[in-house]
């Protein structure tokens, strides 16, 4: 294994590493697409934004 890695040409070595990284990334993409709920809908008025909610009397 050691001699094989050290004996690869620069292009082959870099190509194999990049291919492994891409393959693992694709695996992550397939396994975990995520689950989107929807767009952010800030409160009215927004928390942390201008226009604090008035206190009712």
């Amino acid at each position: 294994m050691v001699r094989w890695i050290q004996g690869l040409s620069q292009a082959a070595y870099a190509g194999i590493v990049v291919a492994v990284v891409v393959a693992l990334l694709l695996l992550a993409v397939l396994v975990n697409p995520g689950e989107r709920v929807g767009p952010v809908r800030p409160a009215d008025p927004p928390v942390g934004g201008p226009g604090l909610p008035a206190t009712r009397l």
């Binding site: 993409v29 396994v31 975990n32 995520g34 689950e35 929807g38 767009p39 952010v40």
Partner: peptide, 13 residues
């Protein structure tokens, strides 16, 4: 969680 301008219940890759 908020990611960008969207809300996710399961974070994507």
């Amino acid at each position: 969680l908020v990611l960008g301008s969207d809300v996710y219940v399961r974070s994507p890759w």
